[in-house]
């Protein structure tokens, strides 16, 4: 019985982008989240490419020195420029943290 229950729980696997922390302006946030989802979908098997794409696009759009961490498990302690941080989950198992620090 317990196993069946577990299975029931496991079945609901959410893949929608979930923003955990963000202090960006609404416009920037929307764009950044869209970018992260797009990158994660495009390079589903290569997290380095994901992070590279996110970083380079953000650099182009919002000025230099963006940093991106993409991974399934990591810990971080970062210093970011205010109003330029986004920490979100994506595709169910991916945590993406992007911030700007010049």
């Amino acid at each position: 019985m317990t196993e069946v229950k577990k299975d029931d729980v496991v079945k609901i696997l959410h893949t929608y982008p979930l923003c955990r922390k963000c202090d960006m302006s609404d416009e920037m946030k929307q764009e950044a989240m869209e970018l992260c989802v797009t990158a994660a979908e495009k390079y589903a098997d290569n997290y380095e490419s994901v992070s590279r794409m996110i970083k380079e696009t953000m650099d182009k759009k919002f000025g230099a020195s963006w940093h991106t961490v993409v991974g399934e498990g990591y810990g971080f302690e970062i210093t970011y420029q205010l109003k330029h941080l986004l920490y979100m989950y994506c595709a169910g198992n991916l945590a993406i943290c992007i911030w700007k620090s010049a």
Partner: peptide
């Protein structure tokens, strides 16, 4: 600037979802 830290584990992601 401000600092921000966190840990990413699969179970954390799952729980928060």
């Amino acid at each position: 600037t401000a600092s921000f830290n966190g840990h990413v584990f699969q179970w954390i992601i799952f729980d928060e979802y």
